[in-house]
Structure formats: C-alpha cells, structure tokens
C-alpha cells in the first residue's frame, strides 16, 4: 500500500497522521515550516481557550505521537511542487532538504491551515507605525514568555485594550467572515494578564461576543472573577497621545451611545483568520474549488466536511475555514479514516 500524503503539520495534519498510523497505514507527512505544530507553535500560543490549558500540553502529545510512529515518514521544510493523477492515487513531487523527487501516494489529506490577517491592512489602527499596537498573535508569545512590557519603552503597561474583529467581518478589507476564535482568545489573554498582574486595567472593545457554546463560561468568568471590562463598540482609529507616550483609542460606546477617547499603554488587535498561503497553493496544485472567502470547500459541508469531492483528496482543519484546535484535531481524525478507506480501495 502506498503511503497517504498528509500535507501540513499543524494540529489537523498531526492528528490525521497519528490516526492513520494507528490504523496501520503508512504516512508521508510534509510540512513547509521547520517545526511541527502550525500557527500555535509559530506564534508561541500561550494558554488555549477555553480550558486555559498550556498550548504545549496539547501540541506536545500530538507531536510525540507522530514522532513515535514508525509508519510515519516525516519531512519538515518540504513542499509539494507538482501533482499527477494515477489510476488510483497520485504521483507527487516533493522538494525539501531531506527528500526530493517523485513519490506515489494512495490518497491525500490537505491540512494546510490558515494565516492570521495582516493588521497593517487596517491602516487606521497604526499597526506597524506605533510599536505599542500589537497583534494578538504576537501578544500570545509575550504572555507565554512572561514579558508583558511595552515595546516602546519596556515599561509594564497600566491599561490594555483588546480590539476584536480586526480583519474579520469587514468588507473594507474584503473579509466578511467571522474568525470564531478572536473573542475567546482575546478574553483569555485579558484573563491571563489579570491573573499575573491584577493591577493592570483591561478593556475589551467588541461588537458581538462570540464565545460560542460552552466557551461562554470564559466570557462570564472574565468579568465576575477577573474584572475584565467590556465596551460594546469598536475603536475606529488609533493615534498617539501625550506626545507619543500613550495610544489614544477613539471609538463609540454603543450602549451609552457616545463617542469615547481613552488613552491606553497597549492595544491588542484580534486579527482574523484568512486562508493560509499553503491552502491557496494546495487549491491551485490539486485544482480544487475555493469559496468566495478563499478557503477550500468540502463537497458536502454538512454531511461530509472532510471530503473534497475529488476522489482521494480529503480536507481537515482551518484549510476549510476558521476552526478551533479541538475541531481541527477531530477533522484530522475524520479525514484519516476516509483517506484510509480510500487507500484500502
């Protein structure tokens, strides 16, 4: 039996590879970066919402399952450059430091993931201009490494704001969809800040809070246990105040129905999720359709969200849309099962 190609080594890809190996199928696991774990590892995610479990406790077992499986042939810094269909399965050309050349695979799991929105595209927030305007993926690393200081002067901030939906739900930047994670992750970050530094004042600017399902608990606790403050209404622009010492967030408090201007030491932007570069490349490479948002589209998103509609190609994780880690892991398992069935013929 030819191996199953798993493209992408994030939570979905790792989960699919481990699952396939446990079924006894050989796996060819390919990741373009030099590490396993995808975006969570790339940005050093701190605690994961909603249970505030350290990211390592989720990622490490996934990675060690893969690394401990003899049936999985793993390649980092490797990409697929060409694909040719076979009567059953595919020929794929790999390019990487350890392996290059054509390989035959029985089926494919695309777990190519997402990219965070580049907040510089929302000009009025001054990201890239003002050092204390921070993207929340960078803020993850800051709290993970316990360096909660202002980039501009190294001081501990006194007041921090989170601004949700940056690059999500916004036609001005062409991204009208919801990222699903921004609310929970931002609230979680505010909680983490308050846990370590109760003296820091934390505000979340939102238009809707979408801590969906059981995650709502986090939202409630952030208020009644950690004193995170919520302002309904968005910050429309960020400028410098006090001679550049602080940031000035101008917004509307839509509950009080009045414009607000609040100086902050740091403002954290909850950047949205866009189809990853790998996802866009995979769509081209395998000739798969993408939706208006640019994500891969399952043939039957309700009945069979892991099937691409093209025989032998299966989809998992954020390649098909914004997704939480547990969902990505689950889809990895589902795609593994389908790919295994296809490989067995």
């Amino acid at each position: 039996m030819n191996p199953v190609l798993v493209l992408g080594g994030g939570p979905a890809g790792l989960s699919a590879a481990a699952e396939l190996a446990s079924l006894g199928a050989p796996v060819l696991l390919v990741e373009k970066e030099e590490y396993w774990g995808g975006n969570p590892r790339r940005w050093h995610y701190s605690l994961l919402a909603p249970d505030l479990l350290p990211a390592e406790e989720v990622l490490n077992p996934l990675v060690s399952r893969v690394e401990g499986a003899p049936l999985i042939e793993r390649h980092l810094r490797t990409t697929v450059s060409r694909v040719e269909p076979l009567s059953s399965g595919f020929r794929v050309e790999l390019k990487g430091p350890e392996t290059s050349g054509w390989r035959e695979v029985s089926s494919v799991v695309l777990a190519t993931g997402f990219d965070h929105f580049d907040s510089r595209r929302k000009y009025e927030y001054g990201y890239g201009r003002y050092p204390d305007v921070i993207d929340f993926k960078e803020f993850e690393g800051m709290i993970h490494d316990d360096r909660l200081t202002r980039p501009s002067d190294g001081a501990l901030p006194k007041r921090i704001a989170w601004l949700l939906c940056v690059g999500s739900r916004d036609v001005q930047v062409g991204n009208p969809w919801c990222c699903r994670m921004g609310c929970a992750v931002s609230i979680k970050q505010a909680v983490e800040v308050r846990q370590k530094h109760p003296e820091i004042d934390t505000y979340v600017y939102y238009m809707d809070i979408r801590t969906y399902g059981l995650w709502e608990d986090l939202y409630w606790k952030s208020m009644n246990e950690y004193g995170v403050k919520f302002i309904r209404g968005r910050i429309g622009q960020i400028t410098q105040a006090e001679g550049g010492k602080r940031l000035l967030a101008t917004g509307e408090d839509t509950i009080l129905s009045r414009p607000t201007e609040v100086p902050f030491d740091m403002i954290v932007l909850a950047s949205g999720m866009e189809p990853g570069t790998g996802t866009k490349e995979a769509a081209q490479l395998f000739g798969l359709p993408v939706g208006p948002e640019g994500f891969l589209t399952p043939k039957l998103s309700d009945l069979n969200p892991v099937e691409s509609g093209h025989p032998g190609i299966f989809l998992a994780g954020a390649a098909t849309g914004p997704k939480a880690i547990p969902d990505a892991v689950t889809e990895g398992m589902g795609a593994a099962l389908r790919a295994y069935k296809h490989a067995r013929g």
Partner: peptide, 23 residues
C-alpha cells in the same frame, strides 16, 4: 449594520449634537 460604532467614532457632528450616523 453590525452596530459597531466605527461610523460614530469619527463623526464630527456626534461630538456636538444629539446625532450619530449609526442611529
């Protein structure tokens, strides 16, 4: 409308009148 209030954020009239573009 998502009632985000970004329109009112930059509105000059909202600062001096009982007025908001969101409304």
């Amino acid at each position: 409308c998502l009632n985000c209030g970004e329109c009112t954020t930059g509105c000059p009239a909202a600062r001096f009148y009982d007025f908001s573009p969101r409304e």
